[in-house]
Amino acid sequence: MRIFVPAAIAALLSSGCRGPETSIHVTETRELTYHDQYYPGDLKDRPPLDWRRLPGTQFRVLNYVAGENEEVEIVLGETSGGVLENANRWLGQFGVSPATSLSTFETTPFLEGDALVVEASGTYRPGMGRGEQENYALIGVILDRGQSQVTLKMTGPAQQVEAQRDAFFKYMASFEKVDEHFIPAENQKKDEDFDE
């Protein structure tokens, strides 16, 4: 008994002081839910296999890197301030004189409308505390949604941006609206259906 009691206490204490696991084998999986169909703006995208997704930020809803040393950045964002103003802001980052009219830009189908295509190359001054880069290029599209604009922008070393051109436009065309999580029209109910 004299031995048993201290031994039991020691066993109890040691079991409570056990350190964390250092290695585990994961076998548990989870069933898919609507959460797995969550896409920003309900837009599902299909990036090329060699693009890699990074954490998003306030201005980078979708944030990818690609190319050698992952120097090419592909960013989807939402902004405001007008289509021409945003196009000129992008051109200004490459020291290009601002355009006076939207008609100077080409357009391309993107999401539910026609988006403005903006291209530039040269010395890139992105601002926001980032240094300037020589021999860079930009390919971007801006879709006007009235109060806001959706932008998709690829920047990086000029040669690599050119190499990603087809992939960029293919990616742009890959967006599809996801609506599985909406109540189907035939199941929608009105307030009076819930009146007592």
């Binding site: 994961v26 076998t27 548990e28 999986t29 069933e31 898919l32 797995d36 169909q37």
Partner: peptide, 9 residues
């Protein structure tokens, strides 16, 4: 481009 059932840690 759809997710398959995830493994969970």
């Amino acid at each position: 481009g759809d997710r398959e059932p995830p493994a969970i840690i």
